[in-house]
Amino acid sequence: MGRIVLDKVSKRFGDVEVIPPLDLTIEDGEFAVFVGPSGCGKSTLLRLIAGLEDVSGGNIAIDGSDATMVPPAKRGLAMVFQSYALYPHMSVRKNIAFPLKMAKMDQAEIDRRVANAASVLNLADYIDRRPGQLSGGQRQRVAIGRAIVREPAAFLFDEPLSNLDAALRVGMRLEISELHERLKTTMVYVTHDQVEAMTMADKIVVLRAGNIEQVGSPLELYHTPRNVFVAGFIGSPKMNLIDGAEAAKHDAHIIGVRPEHIDVTPSGGIWSGKVGVAEHLGSDTFFHVHDTGLAETITVRAPGEVSFRHGDAIHLTPRADAIHRFDAQGLRIA
């Protein structure tokens, strides 16, 4: 169905190598998320898979057959763009039917599939409107509808939720996950938002400067980040990274402790400091602790009812089993 194998794929723009040769396998039916800061090459990688860019080296195989030189139209992949890329001069119905029309499918089958997609995605009410008359969330659904009618080997999503407001984003996230559960089709999803990556992925691919930093399930990445970059990138709020004498105590160059793995007490902890800003979310409270002698700020997550005020002294105790250790190259020490 939709197994995608990248073999030593690389990409250069002129003299700039944006993606050094990399290998990656996305299994059939898997939900793979490419995540990384902007400019890390995640969208370029997706476009290489789509065929919208030529690879500079290496091979791409889809379902076991070499697709490296196959034009995008013939790869059997569907893509949902960040801007949705709906055809503004066509109605919702025609937008969804477009790929089927291009495939010269007969009209009855087109109608059947469009109707089916419309009902799955709740598009029936505005099927005859133009994209310009729809809200952001509705446009997003149309874009997804246009992708699913083709019954592609895999779906490619390029930051599909970044143009939606926060509430809608959470809703669409769930819908896409549900869609994946139902269709069981391979999905490759690009985002810069690690929360999306953590919540949706079967497999996360963390990229930096075109290099794959780590591949793994969300929990693998959370519990055993391979290096400092992944440690700092995955998890929210970010992991506290501490170097110097405190790290040396643990035989490491840098140690990392997640905010949720630090206990706070009014007195008697291992570290002490002064509370800066306290963010009360109700369920949790985040303390930004200064003057610890460890780092500029140590972020701590405490239960909602814990109350320290700005300027209070605070004592911190990291959980011994949750301290991540990294060497001078930033790699994890097992």
Partner: peptide, 11 residues
Amino acid sequence: DILEAARMDGA
């Protein structure tokens, strides 16, 4: 994007 979408849609 829109032209690329068309390309992905098999045009």
